[in-house]
Design a protein around this nucleic acid. Structure first.
Lengths: 163, 163
DNA sequence: TATTGTTATACTCTATAACTATA
DNA sequence: TATAGTTATAGAGTATAACAATA
């Protein structure tokens, strides 16, 4: 249960933080994956894809999904194929570009997702039940800084690569 | 890059926090995995296993590794086999129990791990470079609460299962 | 030529369950 | 019977690269 027994040395604070971040995420993620599987016979990437579409009712192109889900294109094709086969999403033509699709939820997909999202929210609220609203807000803010810094680093690296 | 476009509804704070936590972890983890692969031709679970052993020079039994790494036993066997084949760890007999081993780093393994750990620490320090020492500490504390709450929930569930 | 999306492939990681050997 | 560890298997998840169609 304790994978924080890893780091040491000169900047132990950052390492300790990283290992704890990893542990927290893994604990919650493992629980969510299990529940999604048990209760809805689905997976986190599939739930993730549907969640992206739920926020974009007009649909998203494959490459937009790929970027938002942070996985490569081939995987999005695979997940989309599964969801299409189950009638939860559909591929719509994009007028003006016959290479591309817009993927969007079917009405059945929307209904199914709503049920899952309601449960999912309960699990998450419970997972963070140990924090006060104030602590929750602080955590969110600090992680926002981490995220932005990470994005900045990525941008820097890409500039270096393209130079 | 933005998978936070998922949650909504009644307790959006917890959901937003969860999605941000997931994003941060994935961004950093992806970077660490890539670097481990590029620079040391190894993987995160292998690094993890070696890190556990580095903290326990006298070695750990397979089931102890399994628990600490939060994966099932079969996987530990597989990863250990790889590391043994490369001469980085070794299986030592446990006196008094012929079923069990203690796995520990070889001296070559220790040397290899030290190099990796030094680099790894640099990556992590850089990843959290956007935070002040104070913010780092706050984040660590709050995540500690999340972790403990998660462990408490797990314990509760296990009691229920065994009842 | 570049872009959109698909296909094919391979590899890592994981869990489950059946198994062997020892306690 | 219970425990330590292994083996076998299956599936999720991912990246890479070659490819077809269109821009």
């Amino acid at each position: 249960m304790d994978m924080e027994a890893r780091g040491h040395r000169e900047h132990p604070e950052a390492l300790r933080l990283w290992l704890r971040l990893l542990t927290c995420t893994q604990l919650i993620e493992k629980q969510v994956r299990g529940q999604l599987r048990e209760q809805f016979d689905t997976t986190l990437p599939r739930f993730d894809l549907m969640a992206q579409l739920e926020r974009n009712p007009e649909g998203l192109k494959m490459n937009e999904l790929s970027r938002r889900m942070m996985v490569t294109g081939g995987n999005v094709t695979g997940i989309t194929d599964q969801l299409v086969a189950e009638g939860l999403v559909e591929r719509m033509d994009v007028e003006g570009d016959r290479r591309a699709y817009r993927v969007r939820l079917t009405s059945r997909g929307r209904k199914t997702f709503d049920e899952m999202a309601r449960q999912h929210e309960d699990w998450i609220v419970q997972a963070f039940g140990g924090l006060s609203p104030r602590e929750l807000e602080t955590l969110h803010k600090l992680l926002g800084k981490v995220k932005q810094h990470q994005i900045d680093l990525n941008d820097l690296n890409q500039e270096t690569e393209n130079a």
